[in-house]
Amino acid sequence: MMTFTLWDILRNLLLAARWTVVLSLVSFIGGGLLGMALLYLRIGKARAGRMFVQGYVELFQGTPLLMQLFLAFFGLGLFGIDVPAWLAAGLALILWTAAFLVEIWRGCVESVARGQWEASASLGMGYVQQMRYVILPQAVRVAVPPTVGFSVQVVKGTALTSIIGFVELSKAGTVVTNATFEPFTVYGLVALIYFALCWPLSKSSQILERKLNVAHRNH
């Protein structure tokens, strides 16, 4: 039997953690873009668009991410294509991330005081100008801390993709455990690596909240 040093274990986990980082970035950026498109519909004037986004959010926030991953994995297969795990994982995570970001951002846009809309309208601004020069600059300030905070959920969410066979940090943990029979050490290290990825994000979200809140308080 082969013996594994702590360094062997850690090295393999760190190599796999790269894929956790890549998938997190793809999901967050993709989900952010989709979230912006949905936000446009959600706060727009068309009733059908608002209803659609509400239903979308209800669906993705009301079902487990794991089930969404399974459905993406087997659902794409129905079209007769051989679905690689990374595609199903990326697709499901982007859709899931967008559902949460659109709700966070909607709250931020709505937190801008009503008078700001009225004031900008009285200056003769159109909808696009109001958004561009008055509402969004204020909403973005409010939106930054919770958005950074949510990125932690995205990183943690990528752990579930190991279940449909995407090899990232969690999957590597299982594989290495099966080779070394040291679940305590391996999963302990996996947890620490996730912590090292997530904690700076959590902390900066808290710090940003404290900093940006100062400006937000007086309106």
Partner: peptide
């Protein structure tokens, strides 16, 4: 609180179910 909030539930579960028996 910080440790739990910054690690995935799946890993917490694996640690408890697979890791603790070795103790």
């Amino acid at each position: 609180v910080e440790l739990i909030r910054n690690t995935p539930f799946l890993i917490q579960l694996f640690f408890i179910f697979f890791g603790l028996p070795s103790l």
